[in-house]
Amino acid sequence: MKNEEFEIIRRILGGETQEYKKLVHNYQAAVYNVLYQMLHQHTEAEELAQDVFVKAYEKLATFNFQSRFFSWIFRIAINTAITHQKKAQRFLQLERLPEDIDHNAGNNEQQMMDKERDVILKKAILRLKETYRAVIVLHYFEQLSYAEIAEVLELPEKKVKSRLYDGRKLLKSMLEKQDFF
């Protein structure tokens, strides 16, 4: 896969631009989902996913063939989400409700309670500082290993672990105040 992707990238750099479609096709869902988990806004995630791929195409000549394409594109996605959120910070004073929460969903009491717990947890994740949120999203939602997260974020593995541990601690402290446990 790695060599196959490197070959595609070489062909794109050699002028076969349509080959880029293959890379977009392979990673569009993953990139979209990372952005969505970081922002919890469908429209923004979709628009930013397009920006990420266009940006990656423009920077493709700087790809060093040392890391995998997935970690390179995930890094651009995370940085794009963080930059976007900083720009939009003025409009984020109010707590934002994750868009995918349907308060009418669930047929029985247990389902309603599970849904409510999901809402509380997702809202808490959204309140985390971006550096912690990125690690939580990559670890729990994208199921990346510590080594892969380290590759994406260009951090030592030890630092990834400490951010995850601190992120969990912050979440616990936020959730305690809401009788989550």
Binding site: Q18, Y20, K21, V24, H25, Q28, A29, Y32, N33, Y36, H42, E46, A49, Q50, F53, V54, Y57, D100, F141
Partner: peptide, 13 residues
């Protein structure tokens, strides 16, 4: 986890 698979390749290209 909401898994959505948008079709972006045409738009991106």
């Amino acid at each position: 986890r909401e898994e959505i698979k948008p079709e972006l390749s045409q738009e991106v290209m």
